[in-house]
Amino acid sequence: MNLEVVETAAGELYVDRAGGERGSKAPFYHVYADEAGETRWGYFCGNCETVNNAMDSMGRIECNECGNMRKPDEWDAAHE
């Protein structure tokens, strides 16, 4: 795994740009807390390049900076 180091307010994190999750503006890339890529930390927004995002219980990811959004894995109108 080839990970890119990024400096954040949370410290040094490692981004895997080889994969990721489709977003409305750009992909969300997986972020790891360690250089070996063994400890998942969260997601990195490919649109504005921040880790400032949130995931809800249905798996929806939304960037708090630019509004990039990944739809949930399963959607049910009852949850809206």
Rank of each mutant, 00 (worst) to 15 (best):
G67V: 13
F28C: 02
G42D: 09
E12N: 12
R70L: 11
G59C: 02
E65W: 06
A54S: 15
F44C: 06
L3D: 05
F44A: 01
G46P: 08
K25R: 14
R22Q: 07
A78M: 11
D76M: 07
A26K: 11
N52H: 03
R70N: 13
P27T: 01
E49S: 11
T8D: 00
V51D: 04
R40K: 12
Y14G: 01
G46C: 10
D73H: 13
G46Q: 08
Y14W: 14
A78P: 00
N52F: 02
V5F: 03
E35N: 04
E21P: 00
A18W: 00
E4A: 07
C45F: 09
E49F: 14
A77E: 14
L3Q: 09
A18F: 02
D76C: 09
M1L: 04
V31P: 13
T8K: 02
S57A: 15
A9E: 08
G67P: 15
R70P: 07
W75G: 12
E12A: 11
P72T: 00
E35T: 12
G23N: 14
R60K: 13
E62L: 13
D56Q: 02
L13Y: 11
L13T: 03
V51T: 15
D16A: 04
D16F: 02
G67R: 13
M58G: 01
T39G: 00
E74K: 13
D34P: 13
E12G: 00
G19N: 14
C48N: 10
M1C: 04
D56A: 02
V51H: 03
G37W: 14
C45L: 12
G11M: 07
V51W: 04
G67A: 11
E7Q: 10
Y32C: 08
H79V: 07
N53Q: 08
R22S: 09
W75F: 15
